[in-house]
Simulated assay, not measured.
Amino acid sequence: MRGLASIQKRGKKYQYTISHTVNGKTQLIRKGGFHSKAEAKAAAAEVEAKIARGIVPHLKPVPFNSYYRQWVELYKVNIAHSTRLHYEYTARAIEEYFGSTPLQKIKRDHYQAFLNKFGKNKAKETVEKVNSHIRACVEHAVMDQIIPYNFTKHTKLYYTNPAKKSKDKYLNVNESNLLFNEILKNLDKGLGYYILLLALTSGLRYEELVGLTPDDFNFTSNTIHVNKTWGYNNRMPKGFGPTKNDQSNRMIDMDEITMTEFKKLFSTLKPNKENLVFYSPTSKYKVLSNTLSNKLLKKMLLSLNINPITVHGLRHTHASILLSHGISIYYVSKRLGHSDVETTHKYYTHLTEELYERDSKNTVSIFNNMKKNK
């Protein structure tokens, strides 16, 4: 086994060709697009070094669309149905633009062209999610030695529909306080107020809220065990399902006020077949409707002269309150059930930047105050 490289000029750019012999059979490895002869030589030398170590470049074309689907099947096994739909959305985007184009033929410019086309009439969050899926998949292709580098790196995301402003997604501390007390005053009016209370004080996802049973509440330790979800729309499997990821299976500490109210509720709650807390016999999915919960929240916020947000916005509100009170982002990440702290940081960059400025001033004041008064 040996490699022998030659450099050719193709127009204004250069390419290398490596004559690769294995068991008496010669195969050629070519790569072009280099801006200088030296750049092509350096890249060829790297490939030759790998060949010398017994690392054989992947010569057989690997279709991008099938490789992505195989990657999802192998490495994204224990994910929630809703998350799987996001990966399927990315698969369709790959199929529509790249089809069965081999990974080996896709360059950074090709991928940038894809981002530019895909991002038209798309929101920032959509483009970011699709790009993150593809980038992780392509990184695996690099590790599998199918391609030499990740062509998604050093590209620029493009989108034309701006994401909703962060400040519109959550309530500030004063607004949260008003809502909290208003909910407490209305708990006797129905189960809908209880789910809003718990959404605000726990930060749970809606599918986690409606998947709760009384057994998940521990009134001795004031904790709630989050270990399942419930399908509340047609995009989710019916009935109980797994949490979004392994990190979402968690135990969270709760305040005494919320737990006291739920302890009272359970003493009067009528039993149901699935033992659900937020059971609704008239609902299609047998739990409190997300749509109706949003309407109830909107009605309450308008009555308080607060701009409406969704129930999911209460999850953002919960995290924002904790971060603004100096709670560590690592704790917030685990409490929310995020897969990693980077996810939390991405969602709350606006807050962490504000906290950075506050902490910067506090750091300076600490040392300014160290000098003892005489």
Rank of each mutant, 00 (worst) to 15 (best):
H316P: 01
P162R: 12
T352C: 07
E274V: 08
L178S: 02
T310M: 06
L191Q: 03
Q70L: 07
S132Y: 04
K31S: 13
L296W: 10
H110M: 04
T349Q: 15
K361S: 07
S293W: 06
P237G: 03
F180T: 03
F266W: 10
N275E: 03
R108L: 06
K244A: 03
S280T: 12
A136K: 14
V138R: 07
K13Q: 09
E353K: 13
V62T: 15
L197D: 00
D340G: 01
L59W: 07
Y75K: 07
N172W: 12
G192T: 09
V77Q: 03
H20Q: 10
T310L: 06
K371E: 12
A40G: 03
P281Q: 10
S82H: 07
H110T: 05
K37V: 02
R2V: 14
Q27D: 05
L269K: 11
Y159M: 02
K117R: 09
K50H: 04
L304Y: 02
R2I: 12
Y232C: 08
Y348K: 06
S289R: 11
H154N: 11
N78C: 02
D246S: 14
T220M: 06
I7K: 07
K284N: 13
K156P: 01
S324E: 08
L314N: 02
K228W: 09
N161H: 06
N373K: 15
Q104Y: 10
R53S: 08
H35P: 00
K346G: 02
F266H: 10
V130Q: 03
E88L: 12
P214R: 13
N290E: 01
K371S: 13
Y111L: 09
S280C: 15
H312L: 08
P214K: 15
H110Q: 06
G119S: 04
S303W: 09
V226K: 04
N172G: 06
K13C: 03
V142Y: 06
T344E: 00
K37Q: 11
E95M: 11
P281D: 04
L292F: 12
L4F: 12
L59S: 05
K124C: 10
V287S: 02
